[in-house]
Write a protein that binds this DNA or RNA. Structure first.
Lengths: 245, 245
DNA sequence: GTTTGGCGTTTTTTCGAAAGTCATCTATAA
DNA sequence: TTATAGATGACTTTCGAAAAAACGCCAAAC
């Protein structure tokens, strides 16, 4: 089930994916910067700016941008370059809906087929997440939590037996991560109105007691609540939904 | 709902996506050639070979390959170049399973929410598909049928309201297309053992009579049957699952 | 007043060469 | 014989500049 160090597909950075090429590392940095909102949604990504910002040539830059375009974090228009994908309330809601479909199924299969190793991995991931305080605002501090958060959600699905479903879940996780982080950046207070840890515990408990329906319900609620909050922030911060930065 | 001509995302070629850049057109050609099995699964894609084959420079070539890698039609290993993704029975089955999850849900939503325009589009697509004979073997002749086939399946989902689900369905459709075409290439007889037109009609009828469960069942059976046939061919033609070509 | 057509400027896209990496083969030493 | 080190060749990746396309501005025409 594990991927070797060398056979690093485009897919996702698992644990040990140290970048072997400039294109790879620039891809990760650019992606991080978009996810964390260092470029606003809709802002243009001009090659010369990026070239001096990251101190690389054009070729690996374009390669990174092309990859990000496939992941829909970046939008490209024929001879008119790249920009950070704009963000609409519809995108946020649609992402949540689609995650619920895919992860709902994958979670069910995981709960049905998961063995002791799976349980152990989920317990470990949940523990790490619980001990990691939810940070108040974006920045380097959030990186640690983000990793734990991702690991927890992915651990839940890891026994589903479907590689495609896992990869699509990862793809959508990143979309949602951008949404979350923009909420955090523009409305840090919003986050506090909510007990994320409790929501995670509900999912965890249901999964561990092998209650498929309850786990799906808890997961669905978790995602819909986040989406609702993000949409509310979007409505209050209109510049997020427009083009220029 | 419609995308304008200029705002051509990476996503998919809808109707009018005429290539504006070399990278775009090389992407489409390369993709076609992989889908149609002109490069065997696992065979290396060397830049110089491709450069002379398609008569383009390296930059647009790499861009196309990078895109195809994101779509998992191509696999890349850092510093060791690109190759056509190998194909395993697991991939074929997993693709089918995942399609069933995503399209099952999208089809249900389409049937629930689809209005007259949706019905009309589905009827039109089904008619076009019915009038197009299923070709005996791959080659230019199959292109027309493939387009109709794709249009029909996508029309079914078009009223689901979820852009993500539609795009993921398209992504997986192309995976399955590669599987189908390899079956056709190595075991043309297999295709004849089966009444594809009848399967499509069953899906169509169920959808038009707004019977969600029946439509889902028919769709599921359609995909599983194809997958089973492809897996059988894979077992009989072992060179398809290995690396070199 | 609105549209049309030049014409620099800015930006993207593409090219071919240079630099870098990996795999293989051979020579040498243990 | 087996293992190690170095050299060779094939191929990938990266760079910077040239080519191509879009943009913005301003004047002329309708």
């Amino acid at each position: 089930m594990k991927r070797s160090v060398t056979e690093a597909r485009h897919g996702q950075a698992d644990t040990d994916d140290l970048p072997r090429t400039v294109a790879e590392s620039i891809y990760q940095r650019l992606r991080q910067d978009i996810l964390w909102g260092r470029f606003a949604p809709g802002s243009p990504l001009r090659s010369d700016d990026l070239r001096s910002r990251y101190d690389v040539g054009i070729s690996p830059l374009r390669e990174a941008l092309t990859r990000l375009t496939s992941e829909r974090l970046v939008t490209s228009i024929g001879q008119r370059g790249f920009r950070v994908s704009p963000l609409t309330a519809y995108d946020v809601e649609d992402t949540a809906r689609t995650r619920i479909v895919i992860e709902g199924e994958a979670l069910a299969k995981s709960i049905e087929h998961g063995d002791i190793r799976w349980e152990t991995a989920v317990v470990a991931a949940f523990h790490a997440l619980s001990r990691n305080p939810v940070p108040k605002e974006p920045g380097p501090a959030i990186a640690g939590w983000s990793v734990c958060h991702r690991r927890f959600h992915m651990a839940l699905l890891s026994a589903c037996g479907s590689r495609w479903q896992i990869e699509l879940a990862e793809l959508l996780f990143d979309q949602a991560e951008r949404h979350r982080l923009l909420r955090g950046k523009f409305a840090p207070a919003e986050r506090l109105k909510r007990d994320t840890a409790r929501e995670h515990k509900q999912i965890f408990d249901a999964a561990m007691s092998r209650d498929v329906k309850a786990a799906q319900r808890a997961l669905e609620k978790h995602y819909l609540t986040t989406a609702k909050q993000v949409v509310a922030v979007l409505a209050r911060v209109p510049r997020l939904v427009h083009k220029r930065a």
